[in-house]
């Protein structure tokens, strides 16, 4: 846990009230974002995102599977987060499980839409190879290497970057399979299909400290929060998911105000992230 003295607490709260935080940022400024893609060669796609001291790795692995009978025209995507004990000693053993589950569920809610798959940032029907028989299962595994607050936003950004880095092999289906038989497939190891990642939302977490709210809170600032709202917004400015954390109640009008601020902040974040991802991809191609 964060051990802060009374003076330090007042310093953080006072700084936020005066729009200058302990590290010199304004309330709605992000820390510098550093994106690296293709960090895990065994995966179909991977990315490492660093925001200040927060450091997360996200990977995408694709496996061929069978669509569930209720949705024969959709592939499956699942997100798992793992908090490594390297990030904080309290994640040792089963200590990180609670946080891991909370983050996994929040990410699924923000990025994958409802249970029916409607409203997902990824076009699930593009994952189908043969309707009702074969589809791609995407496993998105995230690892928190170092934690200094704002994990959800960093993980969301890492998943977006990893998906833009992902190449799914082209699959040739042997003709002639009929009825209930599983058709034979031939997985190409040369041709890869890229995803359309422009619709994947970014997550903006607004943390309320005192009467004001801030983006990209550090661990110290998070320890002073009364409540936080994570809002995922896509490029069109649509809200794709919302999670409220923290105990204190919020006035409904403040919630609406926070949503409009998040929408405004997300535009800058998406642009920043897209240019960083493009730069990382270009850097990777060169080397």
């Amino acid at each position: 846990m964060v051990g802060l003295s009374l003076g330090e607490k007042h310093f953080i709260q006072g700084g936020i009230a005066q729009d200058i935080r302990s590290d010199g940022r304004k309330r709605l400024t992000y820390r510098p974002i550093n994106v690296e893609t293709g960090v895990i060669p065994q995966a179909n796609g991977s990315a490492r995102i660093r925001m200040g001291a927060t450091d997360v790795i996200s990977t995408v692995k694709a496996e061929l599977g069978k669509p569930i009978s209720l949705q024969p025209d959709k592939g499956k995507v699942s997100i798992y987060v793992d908090c490594s004990p390297t990030a904080a000693p309290m994640f040792e053993g089963r200590g990180g499980e609670e946080l891991s589950t909370e983050l996994s569920v929040a990410l699924q809610r923000s990025l994958l839409g409802g249970k029916s798959g409607a409203g997902a940032g990824i076009d699930l029907s593009s994952l189908v190879v043969v309707e009702g028989k074969i589809c791609w299962d995407l496993y998105i595994d995230c690892l928190v290497v170092c934690s200094d607050g704002n994990l959800l936003d960093a993980l969301g950004a890492a998943i977006k970057a990893a998906l833009s880095n992902t190449g799914i092999p082209r699959v040739q289906v042997a003709a002639g399979a009929s009825g209930d038989e599983q058709p034979e497939v031939d997985i190409s190891d040369e041709e890869f299909l890229q995803f359309d990642t422009s619709d994947i939302p970014v997550i903006v977490t607004l943390t309320k400290v005192g009467r004001h709210y801030i983006v990209d809170a550090t661990t110290e600032e998070e320890s002073q929060m009364s409540s936080a709202i994570s809002i995922s917004v896509n490029r069109k400015g649509h809200i794709c998911g919302l999670t409220k954390r923290g105990g204190a109640g919020l006035d409904p009008s403040i919630v609406l105000d926070m949503i409009s601020v998040a929408k405004h902040v997300s535009e800058q974040l998406i642009n920043k992230l897209d240019s960083e991802i493009a730069a990382a991809e270009a850097g990777e191609d060169e080397s």
Binding site: I40, Q42, T59, K61, E63, D82, P85, R94, D141, L143
Partner: peptide, 19 residues
């Protein structure tokens, strides 16, 4: 000391419980 393996560390994705 604690040793842990990431889910994505091996060729085939694994989902082993910790410990």
């Amino acid at each position: 000391c604690e040793y842990s393996m990431a889910n994505f560390s091996t060729g085939d994705r694994m989902r082993k419980p910790k410990g």
